[in-house]
Design a protein around this nucleic acid. Structure first.
Length: 306
DNA sequence: TTTGGATTCCGCGATCTGCA
DNA sequence: TGCAGATCGCGGAATCCAAA
């Protein structure tokens, strides 16, 4: 497999390189529903972790000498790598290359949670591929197809790492994560043809939906006419800017309703709604039921009363 | 009865849409 | 890309409801 590099998109946003030549970091033999992993896989895992936001702070500017695999479980991470800007949302993955400058471009939102693993590539001294062997190619920016399984694998990785599991086991779990990522799709291929303005607006909405934003404020931020932005957004994405904002808010509310005990006004505020009544109306519009019913139907919180 | 949270209603201002 | 009419978003107040 090769891990990709990123390069500057002409239009400045989300350029994805989906094929990579060298270096190869591990080799596997494909079989029927199984993978035989060669023990000397040519990579060294340094460490991994889970970042949970406290709703403040920003990713520091730094250059590291290892690869970094980031998988966002909730919220969104705004980050740049040299001249490439990314907004990595829930269920998305980004691979940062060594030797490049990366830093946050916005404060950590309160709901941000992401897994990370640092690894280095050993000098490749592997012979040419043998019959039956294959390499895996990964894009550097991926919308993960089965994000729940990937999150479970990351948790397993961290658990085994804490238990001082043998390197081979950690490598195997890491390999499974990479296989899952390889089966996913590079992020938003259609965006290559999409207006830069629309991409910038969407990225801004993904990181600011919890604040008081509107078509006007997004347009003002991007220094363009609100009418023009609204038209472009509809043209490329088939929905209005307000719809996009509301969808982001409802998505977050959906999660908070089933995983927290916050009151509806509290959740409305956390999702960017300044009015609970309007929150309820919008939630019902998208989900078909009121927030209260949604919580009753899907809440995973068990409340002890004694 | 009180209190806190949920729901409904109404009106103004923001946003969308069609047109130039 | 801007204008104007139509439509919709959103805030505030009133009301409902359930628990204490």
């Amino acid at each position: 497999m090769g891990v990709g590099h990123t390069s500057c998109n002409k239009n400045g946003v989300n350029q994805v390189h989906s094929s990579f030549s060298t270096p190869r970091i591990f080799r596997g033999v494909a079989g029927d529903d199984m993978i035989e992993v060669i023990s000397n896989i040519g990579l060294k895992i340094e460490n991994g972790g889970l970042f949970i936001s406290r709703g403040q702070g920003i990713h520091p500017r730094r250059i590291i000498h290892s690869w970094e695999l980031i998988f966002v479980e909730s919220g969104s991470l705004s980050i740049r790598e040299d001249n490439d800007y990314y907004t990595v949302g829930a269920g998305q993955c980004l691979i940062l290359a060594p030797g490049k400058t990366h830093e946050g471009t916005d404060n950590f939102p309160a709901d941000l949670k992401f897994f990370w693993i640092h690894f280095t590539l050993l000098p490749s001294e592997l012979p040419a591929l043998l019959p039956g062997e294959s390499t895996i190619t990964l894009a550097n920016y991926i919308r993960v197809k089965d994000s729940n399984s990937v999150a479970s694998l990351f948790r397993l990785f961290l658990s085994e790492q804490t238990a001082n599991a043998p390197v081979e086991l950690l490598n195997t779990i890491f390999l499974l994560i990479l296989k899952k990522l390889a089966a996913s799709v590079p992020f938003d291929k259609h965006t290559e043809n999409e207006s830069v303005l629309v991409q910038q607006a969407a990225a801004y909405i993904r990181t600011h939906y919890h604040l008081k934003i509107s078509t006007s404020s997004v347009a003002a931020k991007l220094k363009c006419n609100p009418d023009y932005l609204g038209r472009l957004f509809r043209q490329y994405r088939g929905l209005t800017v307000t719809d996009e904002i509301n969808q982001q808010r409802v998505k977050t509310a959906e999660s908070l309703l089933v995983t927290s005990l916050f009151s509806l006004p509290d959740i409305a505020t956390r999702c960017g709604f300044t009015d609970t009544a309007y929150f309820r109306e919008i939630f019902k519009k998208y989900k078909g039921v009121t927030p209260k019913k949604w919580r009753a139907l899907y809440s995973r919180i068990h409340i002890n009363t004694h």
